[in-house]
Design a protein around this nucleic acid. Structure first.
Lengths: 192, 192
DNA sequence: TTTACTGTACCGTCCGGACGGTAAAGTCAA
DNA sequence: TTGACTTTACCGTCCGGACGGTACAGTAAA
């Protein structure tokens, strides 16, 4: 059952996310999802008995993927100071560099029912707490969290506000602010 | 109160935004909007001939309000270095302090049709350009922009990730990073 | 008389979901 | 090895309800 290829569930999730981004979460219909995922509506309903279950899975999938990436990055950094912030930056960077085709999906969930965002709410709260605990400067940890949140939201809403270069600049800027051995106060970072 | 009497348009826009936030953009129906705005569906359709026009107005309203606040803040700062970033910070701070009841609305628009976000896309691009031009350090301008975007997105998605204190900390942190460092210029008083 | 609605009735379409199949794969006793 | 049965993974159809939008007659104020 655990095939190396894309499972039916994954195909459905991906199809749903794509359609939601293309036509807007409001027009995300089970018919369309089934069609794009390459099965019938009956088959779709077999896999996800209700639309709500599908959307729930979309959110869970999103959180789980992020968490996995984050933990991998954190493992490289053995709980050193700022390691959580650094890991977050690298996760975003990796997503960005690989140009991972991971369209919203969660927007569709929220659009259908705002309470679907609760797992993300909980996850982010924990994440932020860990960042603050693990950081030398809680204020800067907060700003790092928000900066990444900003980047993620632009992606979520499919905004091309930042050019490719801008994104690299932002990520590298963050990286430098939270570089492994930087005891200096980064209030006036003179780059170059 | 800018006007004791809220115009019908404003009432409708507000009602739509509220409903969208409560039950999710997918379940934003004209019937419900009319009911909450205190008029009939016929009356609603008289004011906004289609749902699309309503959603468009929602986005326009949002951008226009932000732009007005931003220009007011900028006017206080006469094009000095970092004044655009500072103005943005203050606009967000004012919204936050006043606890302005301005629920998403734009999320509903995007959920119905992703292209409704285009005006915001354009606006934000211009804003970022102005920030960069006006800043000493374009990288830090970028980070400031993203931080504010992060704050705004958390509000947009109705996420309570940051406590009230966290938000104050973040805003003050930003303020400090972009404080007028010119000794000739007196710093802004904290309370208004 | 115009503006700005109210209120009712209705239409066509779309969509979620229920339901009844069904074909293939696996299980297992004889 | 075979036949009987179960499970898995779907297919295709149908229905009730919601929703956007139309049409139109009425009304109260300016």
């Amino acid at each position: 059952m655990r095939a190396a290829v894309l499972t039916t569930k994954d195909k459905i999730l991906q199809a749903a996310a794509e359609i939601a981004m293309e036509v807007g979460p409001v027009h995300l219909s089970l018919d369309a999802v089934a069609r794009r995922a390459g099965l019938s509506k009956g088959g779709l309903l077999y896999t996800f008995p209700t639309k709500a279950k599908l959307l729930e899975a979309l959110v869970e999938h999103h959180v789980a993927e992020f968490d996995e990436s984050l933990r991998m990055q954190e493992a490289k950094r053995n709980h050193k100071v700022n390691s959580v912030v650094q890991a977050c930056i690298e996760v975003y960077r990796a997503e960005f560099v690989l140009n991972e085709p991971e369209p919203s999906g969660i927007l569709a969930a929220i659009a259908n029912d705002p309470s679907f965002i609760d797992p993300i709410r909980r996850y982010n709260k924990q994440l932020l707490d860990r960042m603050k605990e693990n950081s030398e400067d809680p204020t800067m940890a907060l700003i790092a969290f928000l900066t990444i949140e900003g980047l993620r939201s632009l992606k979520l809403l499919d905004m091309d506000t930042l050019t490719h270069e801008d994104q690299i600049t932002a990520i590298d800027g963050l990286r430098q602010l939270f570089a492994p051995c930087d005891p200096d106060k980064p209030s006036q970072p003179a780059t170059g």
